[in-house]
Design a protein around this nucleic acid. Structure first.
Lengths: 146, 146
DNA sequence: GGAAAATACTTGTTGATACAAGTATTTTTT
DNA sequence: AAAAAATACTTGTATCAACAAGTATTTTCC
């Protein structure tokens, strides 16, 4: 009589899934409470552009580890909200360059502060050394699965 | 001249997001390679039913920390694939009880083995003590954000 | 120079999430 | 017993994900 030894609640996958989902929804809530209605995915794209404005969709896809189709539609939505512009490249008309709007540049620091705040909220009551270990292990998990 | 000190790649949220996404897609691939085409979310539901067959949709929603609308549609999809049955409760006609089909019961151990394998793949080259710490920190993050 | 391959992006489909609103049924209240 | 509240579930809408297929443009190769 062998007992089933798999328990969803105790599994690495489930814990990662829930922690990730909660972080995203908390970030979204923090944005919303400050009148920025931004999804986590949109934030990822903006954040890349804060690092370097005027990237191609392909670069954004690679850096955010997503497929181009997803980026394409994410950018459609960011454009609808006037958060970025899509500018065809002169010398290679296959390529679009994505630029932040002035409106978005103006709120960069506010958005980053909200992202940092979210991480602080998630990290409460956690020993900094153990948090360090966790970040390292998350990197290793990523390496293992890539 | 204060430099921007937020970096997406180094953030807890991003690392959690990527690790979680990779685990889910690896699980999905492992299922697919063995001719089970199951999403992670569907697996979550089945896994709850393996623990206890015949739960209400509400119970499944609470246990998987999802809203009822999501569970409702997940179950629609599981029914399409003949993986579960939806049975209205006699004495309270608001309630549906969800049961595994025989087909699904027959593959429980195989599915659980694939889930365990996925976790093992993700945990390669990780010190068990550090993995323990990570699991505990993930729980704490969840507590912090709930 | 022209065919073939590669590159960048878009569109379609299916499944999932979050939120809001709706229906049906049961329980509580008066 | 009827009205109001609560409960369980479904449906609608918008956004995102993963995969496949399609279009346009540029590069490579003969």
């Amino acid at each position: 009589m062998k007992r089933n030894d798999y328990h969803l609640d105790d599994s690495l996958g489930y814990k990662l899934f829930q922690a990730s989902r909660l972080m995203n929804s908390r970030l979204n809530r923090n944005f919303k409470d400050n009148d920025f209605n931004l999804s986590y995915e949109q934030w990822q794209v903006l954040s890349r552009l804060f690092d370097e404005d005027g990237q191609t969709q392909n670069q954004l896809a690679i850096r955010n580890e997503r497929d181009q189709a997803g980026i394409s539609r994410l950018i459609d939505n960011l454009i609808k909200r006037n958060l970025v512009r899509r500018v065809p490249q002169k010398d290679d008309r296959r390529v679009n360059l994505i630029y932040l709007t002035e409106e978005t540049k103006a709120v960069q620091h506010e958005l980053e502060a909200l992202a940092t705040m979210t991480i602080n909220q998630a990290s409460m009551n956690i020993d900094p050394k153990e948090l360090e270990i966790t970040l390292r292990i998350l990197d290793q998990i990523r390496k293992n699965l890539e």
